[in-house]
Design a protein around this nucleic acid. Structure first.
Length: 275
DNA sequence: CAACCGCCCTGGGTGC
DNA sequence: TGCACCCAGGGCGGTT
C-alpha cells in the first residue's frame, strides 16, 4: 500500500479535502475544518510506514497519518468516478489528476494531521511515538525485542499483539507465527526461553514477509491495494480461520478458542498448552 | 506502573 | 420475509 501510494501521490499538491464521515478523522481532535485547512495547498513529499500505520510526509514538518483498521482502503480514482458506497474521505489535487479516496466499511480506520518528532533516530508522527519498529525495519533490534518480551508477565499472544514491543503483528499473523513456532497462544512470556522467543519472532517475520510478497491478507475481501486489487495471502494461512480442517503438519483438526473477544486458531497437538 | 477489560462500528451471515 | 443477534478487527480509555 505504501509503495503504491508513493507512485501516485508523491510530488503532488492537495487542492481540496472532503470529509464525508466524521469518524474517519475522530483521532484528529481539532475537527474536520482544521483537518482540511491544514492539508489544503500542502505538497506530499514522501510515504512512510511503521507497523500498521501509514503516513504521508507533507512540506512543513507535518504528516498525514493513516490507520486502515480492518476494512480501510486507499484508492486512486479518476475525478468524477462514481462514489463508493463507503467513501469516507476524498483528497483532490491541484493538477486535477486522479484523486485519492479513503473507503472504509467498518469505520475503524482514519486519519489525523500530526507533527513529526525524532524518536530513536526515526521521524515519527507524535501520535505514534509509542509504536515499536516492525520486523521489516532495518533498525529493528531482535535481541532487544526478546529481552522486552521476556520481561513481560502475560500470555505470549497478548505480547505479540502489543504494538509497543513489536509492531505490525495482528490476530492473523500472531496465530500463524505461533503455529510455525509450535507454541500455544497462552504460553507465559516470562517462562519462554530466549531461543523460543527468537523462534516465534523469526516465524512472525517470515509470515509478514511472505504476506507482503503476496500483497497482504484479504480473507474477507475488504482489503485491497491502491488499484483495488486484493492481496491473496489468505490462500497461505495454516491455522487462521481453519477450524476443523487438518493441521498441515500432523493432520489434527485445527481448534478455535475465544481470546480477547475474538478468536485464536491453533493445532492442539503441535501447540500444546503448558502450565 | 503493568496488565487487562470493554467499547468503538458496520454489514454480512445465521437462526428463529 | 423480517427481525434479533453474533462476529470480525486494532487501539485506546478507564479500571484493577
Amino acid at each position: 500500500m505504501r509503495v503504491g501510494l508513493e507512485g501516485h501521490v508523491v510530488g503532488r499538491t492537495l487542492s481540496s479535502v472532503e470529509v464525508l464521515h466524521p469518524r474517519a478523522i475522530r483521532r484528529h481532535l481539532p475537527g474536520a475544518s482544521d483537518f482540511t485547512g491544514r492539508l489544503t495547498g500542502r505538497k506530499l513529499v514522501a510515504t512512510r510506514r511503521r507497523g500498521k500505520y501509514l503516513w504521508v510526509e507533507l512540506d512543513g514538518e507535518l504528516a498525514l497519518l493513516a490507520h486502515l483498521g480492518m476494512s480501510g482502503q486507499l484508492l486512486v480514482q479518476p475525478v468524477g468516478a462514481p462514489d463508493e458506497k463507503h467513501l469516507r474521505v476524498r483528497f483532490r489535487f491541484a493538477d486535477d489528476g486522479p484523486e485519492l479516496r479513503f473507503v472504509d466499511q467498518r469505520t475503524f480506520g482514519g486519519f489525523l494531521v500530526d507533527e513529526l518528532v525524532t524518536v530513536d533516530g526515526a521521524d515519527l508522527p507524535t501520535a505514534i511515538e509509542h509504536i515499536a519498529r516492525d520486523p521489516m525495519d532495518p533498525a529493528f533490534d531482535p535481541a532487544a525485542f526478546v529481552t522486552a518480551l521476556r520481561r513481560k508477565r502475560t500470555e505470549l499472544k497478548r505480547a505479540l499483539l502489543d504494538q509497543s514491543l513489536v509492531s505490525g503483528i495482528g490476530n492473523i499473523y500472531a496465530d500463524e507465527a505461533l503455529w510455525r513456532a509450535r507454541l500455544h497462544w497462552s504460553r507465559s512470556t516470562e517462562r519462554l526461553s530466549a531461543a523460543k522467543a527468537r523462534e516465534v519472532l523469526a516465524a512472525a517475520t517470515d509470515v509478514m514477509r511472505e504476506a507482503l510478497g503476496q500483497g497482504g491478507t484479504s480473507f474477507d475481501a475488504l482489503y485491497v491495494n491502491i488499484n483495488g486489487q486484493s492481496g491473496y495471502f489468505d490462500r497461505s494461512l495454516a491455522v487462521y480461520g481453519q477450524e476443523g480442517l487438518p493441521c498441515g503438519r500432523c493432520g489434527t483438526p485445527i481448534r478455535r478458542e475465544p481470546f480477547m473477544n475474538r478468536s485464536s486458531y491453533f493445532c492442539p497437538r503441535c501447540q500444546r498448552r503448558t502450565k
